[in-house]
């Protein structure tokens, strides 16, 4: 999924209390927020940006039942079909004795599957290099990147951001594509969200 080089207007906020109204105003004005980079999970920011809920936990549930089924069916097959063994006079289908392993594999499948899915969705992996809009985005700044199209007037966006309370506003060119995010379509437009 190669993308071209795109232009972004980037502004940083130092206080989340300023960030929230800014996000709202920027979206209201019709600009497209590419992303906001924050040093910690800011409660409610995903809603403010109109991101849809993640369904990662559903994936976790599916992995979990896969684990349950794998464990139970495998043990059943081994002890009733492949090699029935009398252990302490227990029935071949010794369900109570299999619950512990079944449970462990349920958890194992779910946890491993979810972490891998998380890494895949967020494109996280060792040796991955991504464009960082501001080095302090992992320290104390909330960095907003607004995507520019051909029609966007940078200067207008910049002054808009400045009014919204951003500092260190600049324009950066970055390659789009999978390493700077591929969830543009997940973001609802402000108009759609509010219904006008």
């Amino acid at each position: 999924m190669a993308g071209g080089i795109k232009k972004f207007v980037v502004g940083s906020f130092s206080d989340e209390a300023v960030l929230f109204p800014a996000v709202k105003n920027v979206r209201k004005a019709g600009y497209k927020i590419h992303d906001v980079y924050t040093p910690f999970p800011v409660h409610g920011l995903d809603h403010a940006m109109g991101l849809r809920e993640t369904s990662l936990h559903t994936a976790g549930f599916i992995y979990a039942i896969t684990g349950t089924t794998t464990a139970l069916s495998f043990m059943t097959w081994v002890f009733t079909k492949d090699w029935p063994l009398n252990v302490g006079g227990k029935p071949h289908f010794a369900l109570p004795a299999w619950i512990p392993i079944t449970f462990e594999l349920t958890v194992l499948f779910s946890a491993v599957g979810m972490v891998l899915t998380f890494c895949y969705l967020c494109q996280l992996s060792p040796f991955v290099k991504k464009h960082h809009f501001h080095p302090r985005a992992t320290d104390d700044l909330f960095v907003m990147a607004i995507e520019c199209t051909d029609k966007t007037n940078d200067a207008e966006v910049k002054s808009f951001l400045e009014k919204a309370g951003a500092q260190e506003i600049n324009v950066q060119m970055a390659e789009t594509g999978w390493w700077i995010g591929r969830y543009d379509k997940e973001q609802k437009l402000y108009r759609e969200e509010k219904g006008y």
Binding site: F40, L124, K130
Partner: peptide, 13 residues
């Protein structure tokens, strides 16, 4: 792992 602090990533995280 190339973490950026993206809001979507935090949400999933």
């Amino acid at each position: 792992f190339g973490w950026t602090g993206s809001t979507k990533h935090w949400q999933r995280h």
